[in-house]
Simulated assay, not measured.
Amino acid sequence: MEQVITNATGAIAAGRETDTLEGWQQAGKWFSYEGHAIFSRMAGQGEPLVLVHGFPTASWDWSRLWPMLLQQHNLLTLDLLGFGFSDKPSDYDYSIEDQADLLQGWIEGLGLPSVHLFVHDYGCSVAQELLAREQEEGLPFRIASVCFLNGALFPEVHNPLLIQKLLRSPFGGLISRGLTRRSFERSFRRLFGSQNPPDSQDMEDFWHLLTYNNGRGILHHLIQFMEERRCHRNRWVGALQKAKQPMRLISGTADPVSGAAMARRYRELIPDADVVCLRNIGHYPHFECPWDVFSAYRDFRKRLAP
């Protein structure tokens, strides 16, 4: 099944109803993982819906969608280790598997028997790891459904930006530590579609989250997830193909990294693929056109209702 949405409506109006970045931080709570502080936010009532962000950003990505989802869901989100307002240790062995341990332990610690996952980019790989674990050995909770947003689910059609390639190179440490606001902004803006690009305040917020707690110094460590995707490709793609729970991919097809080609590959490899394409929208659909993403997600969840 495929749906195509051509016009992103209500993006700016809906987005401006959200909190400021400072307010987002003040409303959060921290918990400990392996001795490190992890930022989280929880609010709402209903079935638990866990939101997992992408690279190199943070849970703030969900801020424009948050007030819409809050009406019907118990929302939970966090800044993964090394991202946003969470700790960013410089001597840590960052990996998707470790981030999955973090997320799994958090959900288990909250005593939640079942969760729905809504994941973006890097978070898609974390979800794939959790699906694989569920199928192989079981989890202490049930994954009721998964909705993906512009993630590199199939590394063979992932098209990384030049800055991502440089961060993975032997010079990655120098590139990471020497990253300037101007070079970051130039690369980051390429990820967005033409209809709703980030404004100056948005870029200030993204830069603040990136550099908080010396975040520039670890980007070359975090980026190694691209190699993990390659190494775990068969296991993680197999987890999608074997999944029993409902899944949907919402794809901003103007995304130069994991847009239209990723959506095509999803339809090729996933049985009864459920895909919603957002034309003229880039890598951050939930930030660019939150109302359209909300509508697509609401439709997905309505179909799951008994």
Rank of each mutant, 00 (worst) to 15 (best):
D205I: 07
F188L: 04
Q71N: 05
G111C: 09
Q71G: 05
C147V: 15
F148L: 12
F287Y: 04
F300L: 08
E34D: 06
A144W: 00
G252K: 11
G151I: 12
V115A: 10
F184N: 03
H208S: 13
R142A: 15
A43S: 14
P56I: 13
A14L: 04
Q25H: 13
L51E: 13
I107H: 09
L117S: 04
Q26K: 12
D91Q: 14
P89Q: 07
N7Y: 12
L130A: 03
L249V: 10
G173H: 02
D299T: 12
G28R: 01
L167Q: 04
L162P: 03
S114Q: 15
L167M: 04
H73Q: 13
K165L: 13
H36R: 05
K88T: 10
V157Y: 11
H158A: 08
W60C: 06
L167A: 10
G10F: 03
H232W: 12
V237I: 15
F39W: 12
N234L: 14
E227H: 00
V119C: 03
M203N: 07
I281Q: 08
N7I: 14
D101L: 02
A260E: 12
I163S: 09
A14N: 11
S183F: 10
W24P: 07
E227N: 10
W106R: 01
I270Q: 07
M226I: 06
G252T: 09
S176M: 09
R267W: 02
N74T: 11
R16T: 13
L81F: 02
F83W: 07
W60Y: 15
Q26M: 11
Y266G: 11
I143L: 13
I38F: 12
G44E: 03
G138H: 08
L102G: 04
H116G: 13
T9I: 13
F154P: 07
P198W: 09
L110D: 05
L222G: 06
A13R: 02
S258W: 03
L269C: 01
A127P: 06
G252M: 02
S169M: 09
A27P: 00
I5G: 01
T57P: 05
R189A: 00
N234M: 08
P246A: 11
L191S: 05
W106A: 05
A14G: 04
N213C: 06
S251N: 11
W291G: 00
F225M: 10
Y94Q: 11
A144F: 02
A239P: 02
R301H: 05
A127M: 08
F154G: 03
P155D: 04
I281W: 04
V276Q: 08
V126H: 07
C289A: 15
D205Q: 14
L179S: 00
H120K: 07
K88R: 14
L49V: 07
I250Q: 01
P198V: 07
G82K: 02
D199K: 06
L219Q: 12
L166V: 06
L110G: 05
Y92S: 03
E156Q: 14
D274L: 04
F55K: 00
L117Q: 00
G138N: 10
I163M: 13
H283P: 09
W207P: 05
P89D: 04
K242G: 12
I96K: 02
L269F: 00
E47F: 03
G215F: 04
P160K: 09
A14H: 01
R168M: 15
D121S: 12
E136M: 06
S59Q: 11
L130E: 01
Q224M: 09
G105T: 13
S183M: 14
